[in-house]
Amino acid sequence: MTAADSWSAGRSTAGSAARSEVVLSRLQLLVTRKLDGLLQGDYLGLLPGPGTEAGESREYRPGDDVRRMDWPVTARTTVPHVQRTVADRELETWLAVDLSASLDFGTGRWLKRDLVVAASAAIAHLTVRGGNRIGAVVGSGGTGAGDRGGPGRMVRLPARPGRKEAQGLLRAIANTPVQPGRSDLGALVDMLNRPPRRRGVAVVISDFLAPPQQWGRPMRKLAVRHDVLAIEVVDPRELELPDVGVLALVDPETGELHEVQTADPRLRRRYAEAASAQRTAIANELRAAGAAHLRLRTDSDWLLDMVRFVAAARHARTRGTTR
């Protein structure tokens, strides 16, 4: 590499970093304007966390967590009761961010990778208040795990309090280079289980295209101790194919080129059926793990979807439910 090449590469890297700063600044402003209205009044996190301090009991309602049954009161009154708890004022939130090569795809208003960064920014804004801490583990393709970056390695970003630290975490996520191949989503989620932490919020952001049997068990294990939110990032072309004749497709994880004749209605129907079955399997696995499920699409208003989710979570909390 010549000196000119080195200078050009350095300028390109600096330009990419500057673009990331601009994008993050705009995201911060956008998220603040849209979500601050939901944060007025009582303490509120992204999920209606139950806390750990015991509160009053009340009658059981459909949707309540049976693990919080108040058996002494139930025995005395012969009516099922659950014990309410007071939410913790200082929470620890961890993100598991999947940045596999398949996230560098999008046919709508956004790339899937953009939605991953945007969702991370919204979560950071919602959780970093009152001394709350936020950390992340990031997988960028390939295999391996560790505390330092590298080809095919998963990076752990320690949980720290404060908006400045949260912005640094978001910059690290946005500037993570994508490696060829697919991250092991199961291993990425399992990094949130080690070492064991006090009860908090865990958010997994991915397209969940890896087989459910790979990440289902780690998700269930994670939900035993934490309130888990799964954010699924989807592009409409992953759900159905348009009729555009011969379509050349490149697998971003393997580099393989495939030509598909989209004019065939039977092919489009089989594709849609297979995609629907795949998304149903993902939703069923997340439900079985006890995770809250939010789907963001590249062709829709992701922030409006996030606002609706937070509003529904707050409504569930006022009803005394945990989901």
Rank of each mutant, 00 (worst) to 15 (best):
T143F: 09
D114T: 08
R148H: 15
L286K: 04
V73T: 15
P212D: 00
V116T: 15
R194T: 14
L249M: 13
R268K: 07
A159K: 03
R113N: 01
S20K: 05
M1T: 03
R308N: 13
I205K: 03
L267E: 14
E285W: 02
V178E: 12
V201S: 05
E165N: 10
T13F: 08
G290C: 00
E273N: 07
V137R: 08
H226C: 11
D207R: 07
M191A: 11
D5Y: 01
R133T: 14
D207W: 04
K221I: 11
L35V: 13
H293V: 12
V137L: 06
D5S: 09
T298V: 07
Q83S: 03
S120R: 01
R198V: 12
T52N: 10
L24A: 02
T78C: 03
V97W: 02
D299C: 09
H315Q: 15
D98P: 05
Q179H: 10
E21F: 04
G290A: 03
L95N: 05
L170I: 02
R109K: 13
R11T: 12
D42V: 08
V203N: 00
V138Q: 02
Q214M: 08
V82D: 00
R297G: 09
A145S: 14
A288R: 12
P62M: 11
G290N: 12
S120P: 07
A145V: 14
G181K: 04
A312M: 08
V310F: 12
D88I: 00
A3G: 11
L185Y: 03
P62G: 06
M1W: 01
E59N: 09
I134Q: 01
P50N: 06
E21L: 11
Y60A: 10
G41M: 01
G49F: 04
D299K: 04
R308Y: 09
D184E: 00
I134A: 02
T13G: 07
V233P: 15
Q261K: 12
G49E: 15
G141I: 10
L39V: 00
G45M: 06
A101V: 00
L169G: 01
L46W: 08
S102L: 09
V244E: 15
K164E: 15
H81N: 11
A118F: 02
P72V: 00
R217T: 14
V128H: 09
M191C: 05
V246I: 12
R323S: 14
L170P: 01
H81P: 13
A121H: 06
P196D: 01
Q214C: 04
D42R: 09
W215S: 11
A311E: 15
R268A: 05
A316V: 03
K34E: 14
